[in-house]
Simulated scan of single mutants.
Amino acid sequence: MRINRSIRFGIGVMALAIVAAGCGGGEEKNASDSAASGKLTVGIKYDQPGIGQRNPDNTYSGFDVEVAKYVAGKLGVKPDGITFKESPSAQRETLIQNGEVDFIVASYSITDARKQKVDFAGPYFIAGQSLLVKADNTDITGPESLNGGKRLCSVSGSTPAQNVKDKYAKDVQLQEFDTYSACVEALRNGAVDAVTTDDIILAGYAAQFPGQLKVVGKPFTTEKYGIGLAKGDTATRGKINDAIDEMIKDGSWQKAFEATVGPSGYPLPAPPTVDRY
């Protein structure tokens, strides 16, 4: 029996596709592979003074940026080989899972829920959730004073927003925006009464608007900042953990903190211990 030429051609194409798939064409690159090429795409925040910020001249500054540069250097990538990508809180896991970034350094708290989707190196810093209010506010002194219909702003997809929902949402009107800078603007124009996130981030905003805003109350959570990367990329996670250890030991960690966060008045904390889970 004769086989139609078009059918034979189709069978041949399918066979080639199967062979190609069997030869490893579907293997995924990890962060170490990217670093070996001299290039890395790193997720950061663009709107957190002292932590991660894109400046008007399109340069980047902040403690997270310095940590990212140091880690990249230990992976063999020079600063000009780094592409920084904005990583909003609600999109961080998706950016990692889709391979749009090699790793994320963006005030990214390590939580059990997030560890189901991505891996973490670190922590490289330990912060605590607090509150930012107008400088003349005397009503709000801590989370226990968030009652009577106070309007509180945080960011969707963030740990602070979830904390408020779980513990302090009975008498609070929680408003969630895409960025903390939008929350701060709402606070300045009177649309909300307070902003909540980690104290180190709030200190940066208070310093950005001296005399207008202040951080109140003692931190009421413990937030371990980690470097997020693809789930299962244990080789790269180990290398990044080694880099964080070295950054702390050689004094670069303290130097980076003092140059970026220090001007806000936030006191130098003790460096964290890397958790090699």
Score class of each variant (00 low, 15 high):
Gly148Tyr: 13
Lys134Thr: 15
Lys231Phe: 13
Pro123Cys: 08
Arg188Pro: 13
Ala230Glu: 13
Ser154Tyr: 11
Val172Gly: 10
Gly228Ser: 10
Thr221Leu: 07
Ala135Tyr: 14
Asp178Ile: 14
Tyr124Glu: 05
Gln162Ile: 06
Ala182Leu: 14
Asn137Leu: 14
Gln208Phe: 00
Tyr225Ile: 03
Gly232Val: 04
Asp178Leu: 14
Lys150Ile: 08
Gly190Trp: 08
Gly142Phe: 01
Glu223Val: 10
Cys153His: 10
Lys134Glu: 11
Leu131Glu: 09
Asn137Gly: 10
Ser158Trp: 07
Ser158Ala: 10
Thr197Pro: 00
Lys170Ser: 13
Lys239Thr: 01
Gly190Pro: 02
Lys165Gly: 00
Asp178Cys: 07
Thr196Cys: 02
Ser156Asn: 13
Ala127Thr: 08
Lys239Val: 03
Ser158Cys: 09
Val215Phe: 01
Arg188Thr: 12
Lys218Asn: 12
Val184Leu: 13
Tyr180Thr: 15
Asn189Tyr: 07
Thr138Arg: 15
Gly226Lys: 02
Ala203His: 11
Asp166Asn: 14
Leu213Cys: 05
Asp139Met: 06
Gln162Thr: 12
Gly157Cys: 12
Tyr168Val: 00
Val216Gly: 06
Val133Met: 07
Leu131Ser: 07
Leu146Glu: 09
Tyr168Arg: 02
Ile227Ala: 04
Ala243Pro: 05
Gly157Phe: 09
Thr234Ser: 15
Asp193Tyr: 04
Val155Lys: 01
Met247Leu: 08
Ala186Gln: 13
Ala127Asn: 14
Pro123Met: 03
Thr138Gly: 09
Thr196Ala: 03
Gln175Leu: 14
Ala207Trp: 12
Thr138Cys: 10
Gly226Ile: 02
Gly228Phe: 04
Tyr168Asp: 02
Pro210Ala: 09
Ile140Ser: 08
Glu176Cys: 13
Thr141His: 08
Phe125His: 14
Gln175Cys: 06
Asn189Cys: 11
Gln173Met: 11
Ala235His: 13
Val195Ser: 01
Val172Met: 15
Pro160His: 12
Leu229Asn: 07
Met247Ile: 02
Ala169His: 12
Ala186Asn: 07
Ile240Asn: 01
Lys214Glu: 03
Pro210Glu: 07
Gln173Phe: 08
Ala203Arg: 09
Gly204Thr: 05
Leu187Lys: 11
Thr221Trp: 03
Phe125Met: 15
Asp245Cys: 02
Gly142Met: 01
Tyr205Thr: 05
Lys224Arg: 15
Leu131Gln: 04
Thr179Trp: 14
Asn241Asp: 08
Ala182Trp: 15
